[in-house]
Design a protein around this nucleic acid. Sequence first.
DNA 1: TCAAATCGTTGGTGACACCAACGTAACAGA
DNA 2: TCTGTTACGTTGGTGTCACCAACGATTTGA
Lengths: 158, 158
Amino acid sequence: MPPSHAAPDPDSAPERVRDLPTWRIARLHRRSHARLATRLAEHGFTGRQYRLLAALVEAGSASQVELGDRTGLDRSDVAGGVDALVARGQATRSPDPADRRRNVVAPTDAGIAALAALDVVVASVQDDVLAPLSTDERDRFDRLLDRLLADDPRDAAP
Amino acid sequence: MPPSHAAPDPDSAPERVRDLPTWRIARLHRRSHARLATRLAEHGFTGRQYRLLAALVEAGSASQVELGDRTGLDRSDVAGGVDALVARGQATRSPDPADRRRNVVAPTDAGIAALAALDVVVASVQDDVLAPLSTDERDRFDRLLDRLLADDPRDAAP
DNA sequence: TCAAATCGTTGGTGACACCAACGTAACAGA
DNA sequence: TCTGTTACGTTGGTGTCACCAACGATTTGA
């Protein structure tokens, strides 16, 4: 065993922070994200690349802006992600003959197969993250999440 | 209206991702984190610096490893954070006469005052994030969070 | 036709979570 | 006491994520 850096537990926090909802939400996210990222990494994927490939397969084929819209990624990040997919033979990129400003990005068979494999992985991670909850509790959690995510923080009807 | 990069909504995602718990948790975190970060930034603070200052005030004074333990930050990140606090006159750093490997980091009056101001800000962000929920729902959410976080993350050490 | 908008690319920014190596200093065992 | 090991702080990386600015090439629409 190396001298051991004795990495501090990233979940430890000062007293006034420990019980804050924002802190607990961050902790939950770190955990769920770490699990997902680890499992995706085993297949050579990053979270963004998975989203990208998913959007690509769902769309059949798309321009990079469209991929940006479908994944919530910035144009520049789409470019890099598509680079990775193309490099691995999971997608193709070619100029759009109808509008030569655009690229047409399309999944390959290998890409489609990879996504199918990832879907299984991703589903198992969901179960992993929610494991501590019963079916009932998962439902309740889901509904609370709905409420919290419901958009319009700015609209207070007078 | 500027040429408009037309930044995509970061919450948009492919179909198979949209309803995943991990994705929804990530969305909630992005939201709560963005609100907190924005409000802290108005006072020149980053999330880590707030945690650091909080740990510092709670401890009275501490070495940097101790700050790392109290905040969950890596040694190297503590170093940078303390740099910032010292540069702003919110903390002092001096070698520990009792163990010259250590630094003694201590909050200044300005640091203590800054933390008091931040505490108010942070509290208001909590309320903001939980705004969509009733008191009852907040309790339920809190308990579910407890369950989800109870599971031990640092296992897998056979 | 010519200015304006769009698309993709490149190259940054900052925050966050990590890890490796190094010099100094303290310590513990032989 | 000497000597090897550990601890501390610093420096300088890594990669992910979310962004933003500018540029060339292309298309549009006034």
